[in-house]
Amino acid sequence: MDNSEVIIDLKGVSFVYHGNHSQRPVLDNLNLQISRGQRVGLIGPNGSGKTTLFHLLMGLLRPNQGEILVFGKKRQQEKDFREVREKIGLLFQDSDDQLFCPTVAEDVAFGPLNLGRTQDEALEITRQVLKRLGLEEFEDRLTYKLSGGEKRLISLATVLAMQPEVLVLDEPTTGLDEDTVERLIQILRSSDLTYLIASHNREFLSKTTDTVYRLAQGKLARAT
């Protein structure tokens, strides 16, 4: 695979939340390029628009201005983003938002089933992913009875089960103990995915990413 291929390209993206027109935009003429294999960190104060940026990338929000190119194609409508969501996996800040099925196995299988896999294939993928993350014993557990750390890892499993090419993680270490953070670092390091992580945890970013950007006043800058 060509390592310099740009797979995510945001050009002059601006975004203002509804009813906030008098205020400054959350994102102001922002540019971002991510190439295949790149591991990018994103820091920025609370409310600086990190989550907004991710939601724009996934097509959950639409920019007021600018272009979003993913895998070389311009993405504008819901149907353009459907393909994006198959290839980019987003891990939400709050795992309770992500895990909504009764059991772990059903939740992990949800993505693959949506992508048109058969039940057997989906179960097979579920088992593989859980095994890869060392979570085999969780298959039949009820999602609402998991601990915070377990929920985060299972959420990651639900995203990985879609076999994405890019991972986007929104504050993945919040509320996790050291061991779970360490586990997360190992999982990320051993993967060959392109990823983009928003976090306040500098140490975590320095261990998992090679480029770190700072988002402030709606713009991105290389962080030092």
Partner: peptide
């Protein structure tokens, strides 16, 4: 939104 990100299109299995 989380469901949409995982390719939800109105069908449950």
């Amino acid at each position: 939104k989380a469901m949409l990100c995982r390719g939800f299109h109105g069908e449950f299995y």
